[in-house]
Amino acid sequence: MATQSNLAHQDAPKPGRRDFLYIAAGAVGAVGVAGVTWPLINQLNPDASVLALASIEFDLSNIQEGESVTIKWRGLPVFVRHRTAAEIAEAKAVPMSELKDPATDEQRTKPGHEQWLIMIANCTHLGCIPVGQSGDYDGWACPCHGSQFDTAGRIRKGPAPTNLVLPPYEFVTDTLVQIG
């Protein structure tokens, strides 16, 4: 570092101690920089008020058979469909070979709660919200680019590559579901 000729060198410092001192100071400085940087980045993460709504509870008891509601979860629309027996039967009857993204009806629902279909309502193509109970498969049809989904929300026709996405959820009781 400092080998300028204009310095009045009095004695050459012992290399061992000098180096240790500089390395120690540099290391502590690096810890300090890291310690300051992390909170400055972490503040970008979802804040406490957002996280508090990351998991919501939803009461299913008011939804009659054959009805759907759209609820909001983490800012996304979520379909909650109380399927009829006919819809369930129709979904179960589809052979796997006909599916672009094969999944059984059991995989699309929770055991013992097969009447409930809960899916994120954004089309897996480019994110539009499909219209319910329409199209050739009695499920959902996307108005934007013509994707069609069946009564288990599986892609049957059109440009969407995969089935409608299922959010993580579980049944707290028979009529109370916790999403997220």
Partner: peptide
């Protein structure tokens, strides 16, 4: 605690450097 430690080290660094200069 960190600042006190760092200040102490920096003081030594500074003193070491400047010991060569009147």
């Amino acid at each position: 605690a960190f600042l006190v430690l760092f200040a102490g080290l920096m003081y030594l660094v500074k003193r070491k450097l400047w010991s060569r200069v009147e």
